[in-house]
Simulated assay, not measured.
Amino acid sequence: MTTAPRARAPRRRTGAILIAAAAVLLSACAPAWEGYATITGYAMCDDDLHTMTVTYESGPNIDSAKLTASETPSVVTVVVALQGSGAVPAIAQPATATIDLDQPLYDRSIITFASQPVPAGRLLTPTHPTG
């Protein structure tokens, strides 16, 4: 019977490497950043007062953009949530998204989540369209 200590360093090192590799792989699944786009305008479809197209500031490194609307009898609040990877875009490029409202717009106001009014009829030609 030997009294020599067992070598555990290779096992610990292998475990540490596996944990580090799993952390790197899992971090690649999550978005690097999330934020809200600046909304620059909206327009309604001429023949359908339920369908609204919103122009917002987009840019490179944006992986997804999601337009949502919250409606009351007097106000429609629009939000474009962005997710991206890499650097947050420093240069804004116009993009558009379309949403169907529950009720026709009629004379309701359109505002952002920061309660800022959204100008009507300012649809810019998108260079980075999303849906």
Rank of each mutant, 00 (worst) to 15 (best):
T112K: 00
T96L: 01
S115L: 04
D102P: 01
P94C: 04
A81K: 08
Q103S: 08
R108A: 02
A114E: 13
R122H: 08
G86K: 01
A95P: 06
T112H: 10
A95K: 04
G86T: 10
R122P: 02
I99D: 08
A97Y: 06
I111W: 02
A90F: 13
V80Y: 10
A90L: 08
P104A: 03
L82Q: 10
P89K: 04
S109V: 03
R108D: 06
A90H: 10
D102H: 11
I99Q: 08
T98Q: 15
Y106E: 14
G84I: 05
S85R: 15
A97R: 02
I111M: 03
A114V: 04
D102V: 06
D107K: 00
G86H: 13
V88K: 12
I110L: 07
V80T: 15
A95G: 15
P104N: 03
L101Y: 13
Q93N: 10
S85Y: 15
S109N: 11
G84H: 12
D100K: 07
T112C: 07
V88L: 07
A81M: 04
D100V: 10
R108F: 01
I91H: 11
I111Y: 05
A87M: 14
T96E: 09
D102M: 04
L123I: 14
R122A: 01
L101D: 11
Y106K: 07
Q116G: 02
V80F: 11
I91M: 08
T96F: 01
G121R: 04
A92C: 04
T96A: 02
G121D: 11
A92P: 05
V88M: 10
A81L: 01
I110N: 05
G86C: 10
I111K: 01
V88F: 15
T98M: 14
Y106T: 09
Q93V: 12
P89E: 11
I91A: 12
G121F: 06
V118H: 11
P94I: 03
A95V: 03
D102L: 07
